[in-house]
Amino acid sequence: MTVIDLGELGPDFTANPYPYYAELREAGPVHAVRTAYGMDAWLVVGHEEARAALTDPRLSKSASVVDLVPLEEEAVGLHLLAVDPPDHTRLRKLAAGAFTGRRVENLRPRVQRLADQLVDAMLPAGRADLVDSFAFPLPIIVICELLGVPAEDRDTFRRWSNELVTPSGEISEQEAVEGFAAYLDELIEDRRASRPTDDLLSALLAHSAEDGDRLSRSELRAFVYLLLIAGHETTVNLITNTVRALLTHPDQLAALRADFGLIDGAVEEGLRYEGPVENATLRFSREPVAFGDVVVPARSAVLVCLASGDRDPDRFPDPDRFDIRRDPRGHLAFGHGIHFCLGAPLARLEARIAIRTLLERLPGLELDPGAGPLEWLPGGLMHGVRHLPVRW
């Protein structure tokens, strides 16, 4: 059996993995790989197979299947992305009760005000790093306010979060996750001792205090941890990747500027074409699982490649073409099945407002040609750039 070492594919693969995934899809729907961090896993690359894998109960989200206890689980606890039914069913129900569509929709005016304020601050300079000046602060402020977390702590969250999903080596994973856990414990205790407010953390605390089914202390901490990371990391890259795609496809940019009724299509195509999550978080096979002619052995790590599935020509004709008028339904950017992203409505709301605001208020927006090469996020979980220099 040939094991493909993804870490040896180099910076070209990190920046543009799609040609590599196309070659893998031609050879078969699943492949034995070694990740950039030296873990052996099976990589699912076809759209149909990825969609099936995301709902296959034989593929567990719990690392206990392979007798592992991740550092994150030890320090923070079990969250929605690390458990199976019936625990997942119970946690999802409790979380969904607090994270409602109405709560998200009520954020629309605030998201618009934030987007305008961030553009106001950018305007005088004539150029900016879109990540630092806009795509990062927008979702992190929103999720901090939604949870009732002090906004002044967002730079600390960013440092911890970056280290956990796209390691830089500036601090250790253990330092990041333990620092995050300690902060959340203090935050939750402070909120528990104070008068309840209308924020999401208060709503979650109310769930944890109700008779009957409830969030335990560990579950509450883990859910807030997940929301703080997933609630901004994905949206930062969704905004940045979609803006970059538009700026490098002038015909699509012109079409959107001419008709902002296409904004929903632009965001969905951005999710499909260059989504923020390259590979779903790990699954583990409880028993042998067949993908075509290949059988993944029991007790194996499985990576479902969302980026490859969304460029599969069997599902999306001419998949390497960025087309905001395309019907992108069925894309996997937010996952599929019971682990479909709980925060997808918020991410879509933020991206639609953010991109429209940028294009309306910065009519000359373009990539900064003198900024040098882009620095791509490592690791294979998130896909995006650390900085996106632009000018107008």
Rank of each mutant, 00 (worst) to 15 (best):
V3E: 14
Y18S: 11
A32K: 15
V33F: 06
T35S: 05
W42R: 11
V45T: 14
L59I: 09
K61S: 15
S62A: 15
L68C: 11
L68W: 13
H79Y: 10
P86I: 07
R90L: 09
L94G: 09
A95W: 07
G97K: 12
T100Q: 12
L107K: 14
L107W: 14
R110P: 09
Q112R: 15
L114S: 11
D120T: 08
P124C: 05
D129S: 06
I143K: 04
C144L: 01
E145T: 09
V149F: 12
A151R: 15
R159W: 02
P167N: 12
S168Y: 03
E186G: 14
I188S: 07
L200Y: 02
A203F: 03
S208R: 13
G212E: 06
R217F: 06
E219Y: 09
L220M: 06
A222P: 01
F223P: 09
V224P: 12
G231K: 05
G231Y: 02
T234C: 08
V243D: 00
A245D: 02
A245N: 03
T248S: 09
H249D: 01
L253W: 00
I263A: 13
A266N: 04
G270N: 02
N279S: 11
T281M: 15
D314N: 13
D327W: 00
P328R: 07
P345I: 05
R356D: 11
L359A: 10
P363N: 09
P363Y: 05
P363M: 05
G364W: 00
L365M: 06
E375M: 11
E375G: 13
P378D: 11
P378N: 11
L381C: 04
G384H: 08
P389E: 04
P389N: 04
R391I: 00
